[in-house]
Amino acid sequence: MDAPLEALIAAVVAFIFISLLFGFLALVCRKPQPKPQFLASRSLHSSAVAASAPFEESDTFDPALDRVSLAELAAATKNFSPESIIGDGTFGFVYKAQLPSGVLAAVKKLSSDAFSPQGLRQFRAEITTLGGLRHPNLARILGFCSSGRDRMLIYEYLEQGSLDSWLHDEEMNCSEPVLAWPVRVKIVKGVAAGLKFLHDECQPPVIHRDIKASNILLDGGFQARIADFGLARQVDGSRSHVSTQAAGTMGYMAPELRDGLMATAKADVYSFGVLMLEIASTRRPSWPVREDGGYEVSLVKWARKRIEEGSLREILDHRMEIGEGKVGEVEGFMAVAYKCTEESAKKRPSMREVVLLLDQLL
């Protein structure tokens, strides 16, 4: 092979080698391209829960309320100041706010936990479930605001705050009168009516899954309103339960949920029964009760034993004045609480049956 041909072949080989080398280096060193961001649609549900939405989204469910921006909510709550806090829900604090329209509202600002898959589900559940429900014993949601990673829910403001505060807040207990027995009965009947509506009158039915004193709000007349639907689930017509991990609050949680079984409406019935015992006794379900022998038991176990023995006055808040004429009411009240807190879900009544029993006995 002559010299010019060898030189040409060497040049071609060198060119191919260098081209491959530069191509390899370019592939290795190339910066990753950012994933495209898709704008959320303007529909209510998808826009409310888009985790990376680059714009602010808000909407209202009350025709009398104008849309509210994040800046306006911040101003209305003094930049979400601790002094504006009036309660806390499953995933965030609740602030008292006077909106630019003059409406007094309660704004729930979801905490960082809301950015987990569970927290995003909660935001979706609050909007899709509570936004479309109307009942005198359900807290009314007025609207929402979603801006970047900030998510706020706007509720009607209820003057008397949470039932938990009335039962357990020491400062309030010192400055306010003790809840009288008729008021406690009224609260119980209101919660029962709200749950009956969710279980029997909603289509599809709704299981709340977190009935507890802090999720019961009171209006000016001490009418009960069920709030915080973050763990709520709708049950379609083909099933009587929802497939889920344990949900709820310790002390109120039904035994089947603690054991990892399916959630049914009977789990709400159990939590309601626990709430009845808490309202009557002013004892926290999450705190153990010390028996005479020194050992500790749950509020439910302690109270059920007293009911079986007929020692009902031991359960009642000693600060309440209950005349002899109310003995029958107390017995009826405790009988319903006993039925609702049965260990077996099959033995518990439905909320429809509970409402009938309460109407007959109280």
Rank of each mutant, 00 (worst) to 15 (best):
Q223D: 01
L73R: 10
A7I: 13
I127Q: 10
L198A: 08
G119A: 07
I18W: 11
V269K: 05
L275F: 08
S112P: 00
L362W: 05
G194S: 10
P54M: 03
L198D: 05
H241K: 12
A114F: 03
L104Q: 05
E308Q: 15
D317Y: 01
S46H: 06
E308T: 15
E309F: 13
V242D: 10
L70G: 07
E57Q: 06
I207M: 12
V12Q: 08
A180H: 11
M152E: 12
Y252H: 08
S243P: 03
F91E: 08
I207P: 04
S162F: 00
A125W: 09
V68R: 04
L20G: 13
V289R: 13
E342F: 14
R306P: 07
D169T: 04
Y338K: 08
M351V: 09
F222C: 02
I18V: 14
F61A: 02
Y155A: 01
D228M: 09
G310F: 11
F272A: 06
K305A: 15
A51G: 00
V336T: 13
F123V: 03
L195T: 02
P182C: 07
S243T: 14
P117A: 08
G332C: 06
D113I: 00
P32L: 00
L217Q: 01
G92Y: 05
W166Y: 07
L167V: 02
T128S: 15
G332H: 09
R151S: 10
G92V: 06
G328T: 04
D359V: 00
H241Y: 15
G220D: 08
H208G: 04
P36D: 14
M262C: 13
F24L: 15
K35Y: 11
C29P: 00
L356I: 01
D59C: 07
R30N: 11
L138I: 11
F115H: 09
E6T: 09
G260N: 05
A106N: 04
I187W: 04
S243C: 03
R184N: 05
L120C: 07
E321R: 15
R149C: 05
V68L: 01
L357D: 12
D200E: 13
G325T: 11
V355P: 05
R313T: 09
N137V: 07
K78C: 15
S116Y: 11
I211G: 02
E6M: 11
V12F: 14
K196R: 14
V188W: 01
E159Q: 01
L179C: 13
S47Q: 03
V300F: 12
K339R: 15
L316K: 02
Y155N: 02
V235M: 13
L218H: 05
R149I: 02
I16V: 09
G310M: 09
E314I: 00
R134E: 14
